[in-house]
Nucleic acid binder design. Structure first.
Ligand SMILES: [Mn+2]
Ligand SMILES: [Mn+2]
Ligand SMILES: [Mn+2]
Ligand SMILES: [Mn+2]
Lengths: 220, 220
DNA sequence: AATTATGATAAGGTTACCCTAATAAGGAGG
DNA sequence: CCTCCTTATTAGGGTAACCTTATCATAATT
């Protein structure tokens, strides 16, 4: 049986592995940071997951999901994003209000329910934040997709997905940027750490902190 | 904060109070029976709920919900039945498959989500088993509604609701009886403990065990 | 090589639920 | 009043997750 706590750890590890596919290992400190739990709690959980065969662990190096762990992670993430989509598209939730509900629903969703929801919504491709419903650790990196922070001046891009933290989402909502939106880079100023973009004939300035939360893809 | 275990106990106590409005108190033994937990577990939970002000307890007499306890119970039951309705009406679950999923979903459903679901389904009156979505301990007893076991020969009745245990539901499904169905009593034989009914021009025999799980209301 | 920073773990505590086995309290009948 | 049975409760234990505090082990810096 999988418990809520376990599943959240597995999910976080998966996300960290995806974010940084170069280094195969996720460091304990990253997990402490991301989960907000104390070091001994994280350590204890790592041992639990190792003993269940969901995790490999080398001390002072880090952890990595086993293929079973990966499978569980992808399954939960799918459930998470299905609920986000349902709440947003059918129950009129705003896109910054869906993550927390999904965070709880994902754990008590049977595979049966997951499939039924998926079919009910006619197999959506992505959640409202632009993240794919069906995930796999391998086919993660479409090399065309880059962080907005790395976009080049005078080129056009489409927003693919955005980081799903409430502050980011609320702000993006206010300035009318979302997955699918087309933008043009007027200027990328690494020294002053901002990017000036144009969309809807309006010019907007995006700081680097926010620009790291937006994934875009060059057009044509 | 309310936890899953607590909420299930509160709900069960509420149901027992409704089933038997004459005696105001629910005995510990009834709870042991219904929950399937060991006596000390039930005893411990009773004390927890008392200390939270959700329950009154007189030893060797039984327990009774406080008004706050009743309120919580009604709220969870509403969520339970909303999910049952959603699973049945929108996700094509059969009516004997919805209870267990709802049993888990009810606990992680915020009031916000509950209201959104309720509105999405256009404020249904009852769950697929015929139980009201909006519950209150007082307005429970429509005196016109009786158990099928007490129905009189040669009269017509409408099925109002049925007990939501999988075996009962599966059987009723096979013989095409559900809330809303109109039946006529050909014979009620207390000695042999069966009732012969007619619906859809077909005659069916219902044993008293099953007849206790069906609530009906006399027509005109 | 010595110091400092970081990372890992041990020890002990908490809360929500669950359990078994043993004991105590009430009520009915002799 | 005492015995028997039902019912209630105590005592003691377990697991999943969390915590704090203190003490290791290793890596990095000086
Ligand atoms: Mn999310
Ligand atoms: Mn979660
Ligand atoms: Mn039910
Ligand atoms: Mn439940």
């Amino acid at each position: 049986m999988s418990f809520r706590g376990e599943e959240d750890y597995i999910k976080q590890i998966f996300q960290l592995q995806c974010d940084n596919p170069s280094s195969a290992y996720v460091k304990t400190s990253e997990l402490i940071q991301l989960t907000g739990h104390a070091a001994p709690s994280v350590n204890e959980m790592i041992k639990r997951l190792v003993s269940k065969g969901l995790l490999e662990y080398n001390r002072y190096v880090g952890v990595r999901l086993t293929s079973e762990g990966e499978h569980i992670a992808a399954n939960i993430i799918k459930k998470h994003r299905l609920w986000e989509t349902f709440l947003h598209d059918y129950l009129n939730y705003k896109w910054d209000e869906i993550h927390d509900e999904a965070e709880a629903l994902e754990h008590i969703t049977s595979d049966r329910l997951s499939e039924a929801l998926y079919a009910f919504m006619a197999h959506p491709k992505t959640c409202p934040h632009g993240n794919p419903i069906e995930v796999s650790i391998d086919d993660q990196h479409d090399s065309e997709e880059i962080l907005l922070i790395n976009a080049s001046t005078h080129h056009a891009y489409r927003i693919i997905r955005v980081k799903d933290t409430p502050d980011v989402l609320e702000y993006l909502d206010r300035i009318h940027l979302k997955p699918g939106t087309t933008i043009r880079i007027n200027e990328n100023d690494p020294f002053n750490e901002f990017i000036e973009i144009k969309n809807d004939d309006r010019t907007k300035t995006i700081g680097y902190r926010l620009a790291k939360s937006i994934v875009v893809k060059k057009l044509e």
